[in-house]
Amino acid sequence: MRNGERRGPGELEAEVLGVLWDAGEPVSATDVQQRLGGTLAYTTVVTILSRLFEKGVATREKRGRSFAYSPVDDEPGLAARRMRKVLDTETDRSGVLARFVSNLPADDERLLRDLLHESRD
């Protein structure tokens, strides 16, 4: 806890994931704990890293008697995976995509059109 405040849902996972992104190489739970300022219990860090692994957001490799963790994607990649996961649960994909695009601000819609055009070339 920071200054007696409780973290919001997912905030701790986001902080740990931020450490993995910043590290640029596989890191241990001890490394993550230290990079977060050493205020979290080691077991808490291990639990969060295990959850990230189980969710498919992080990979792990055996290093001695413990693991070293890496993110599966960068931040934009993770957001895209989340969006795809939501889309995959819907039965009316066309309707969901149409509604998504129709609710985009004009600049984002233009950007999406440009990206789609580039991907076809």
Rank of each mutant, 00 (worst) to 15 (best):
N3Q: 07
G10R: 13
L49S: 04
S70M: 01
E5S: 09
E75P: 03
Y42G: 02
V57M: 14
N103F: 00
L49F: 01
S94G: 01
T89V: 03
G77P: 12
D108A: 11
A79P: 07
L87W: 03
E61W: 00
R82E: 09
R93S: 03
D108S: 10
D114N: 08
S66I: 04
Y42A: 04
E15I: 07
R7I: 04
A106E: 09
L36I: 10
R93N: 03
D88H: 10
L115F: 10
V32I: 03
G95K: 00
E15T: 00
I48E: 15
R113A: 08
E11S: 12
L40V: 05
V45F: 03
L20Q: 04
V45P: 02
T43E: 15
V19Y: 04
P71C: 10
M1S: 13
G37L: 03
F67L: 01
V19K: 10
R7V: 09
T47I: 04
S119G: 03
G10P: 00
Y42W: 05
G10N: 14
V45C: 06
Q33C: 11
D31V: 11
E25V: 02
A106P: 08
P76D: 07
R60Q: 14
V19L: 03
L116V: 13
K85H: 12
R84A: 12
E118L: 14
F53R: 14
D73Y: 14
A29T: 05
D108T: 05
